[in-house]
């Protein structure tokens, strides 16, 4: 895996809001096809960092490249290369499954024919043929999350950002979702995921834990557990985040 190209590279990336240093000089790389867990307590600066990498926010200083493009000057090119699925629900509830897929395909530049082909293909793959013409709002939350994730992959991004994708989902759906993540990463697309489920941190290739705006630890789950003499990521997290000073 070490010879694969970096999809994200940051160096001393910093973002200030007035006096407040939300993200304090973070440096890390994410490789192609890697599942990268981005953890931190509430208010540790995760969301800010993620917004910078998605091209929604400019950094104050430091360097960052996403999919080879600079976050300062090429945010529009970045947007074409990333997929994003947010904690807040990201499909239109009053459009049908098919309309949603075609819409998001469309704004990423798929032609009408491609939209049709890809939406048909996706609907079949998710086993949603009967639900394709139902409004998304009428579907259970677990299905919506799968559709939402698949839609974020429609334009074949180099990396997908998942902002707490599995909150409130039953355990089977959560595992099916995890299978999709494995499959996606296997196809070479990097996954950048934030979560409050510490057992989900275990399946990441590497995990970074942010405390008070800085990265306090970054390694594979195994090595982190060794380093902190812990038997689970939960306990690693608690050791690190307990000393956080910042309270949002």
């Amino acid at each position: 895996m070490t010879d694969l190209p970096n999809v994200i590279e940051t160096e001393a990336l910093t973002r200030r809001f007035g006096d407040f240093v939300a993200v304090n000089s973070i440096s890390f790389q994410v490789k192609a096809g890697e599942i990268f867990g981005f953890l931190g307590a509430n208010g540790a600066g995760k969301t800010t960092a993620m917004r910078i990498l998605c091209g929604l926010l400019s950094p104050t200083s430091g360097k960052a490249r996403v999919a080879g493009y600079d976050v300062y000057t090429e945010s529009e090119s970045i947007k074409q290369q990333i997929g994003y699925m947010s904690q807040k629900f990201s499909l239109y509830e009053n459009l049908t499954v098919r309309e949603n897929i075609r819409f998001f395909g469309g704004i990423y530049g798929l032609s009408a024919a491609e939209q049709k082909r890809k939406s048909d293909e996706l609907i079949t793959r998710l086993g949603l043929s009967h639900e394709a013409n139902k409004l998304v709002g009428s579907l259970p939350i677990g299905w919506r999350q799968k559709i939402s994730f698949s839609t974020a992959l429609l334009h074949q991004p180099k990396i997908v950002f998942l902002d707490e994708p599995t909150g409130g989902v039953d355990p089977i759906t959560r595992r099916q979702f995890r299978d999709m993540i494995y499959e996606t990463a296997h196809s070479g697309i990097s996954i950048f995921v934030t979560t409050h489920y510490m057992d989900e941190a275990e399946y990441c290739d590497r995990v970074s834990i942010m405390v008070d705006g800085a990265i306090a630890a970054l390694d594979t789950p195994d090595r982190l557990k060794q380093q902190f003499v812990a038997n689970s990521m939960d306990s690693v997290f608690l050791q690190l985040a307990r000393h956080a000073r910042r309270n949002e």
Partner: peptide, 14 residues
């Protein structure tokens, strides 16, 4: 409010 605007903001829409 629905949050979908965020999804459009991260897309290449101008």
């Amino acid at each position: 409010e629905a949050g979908t605007i965020e999804q459009l903001n991260v897309s290449p829409l101008k």
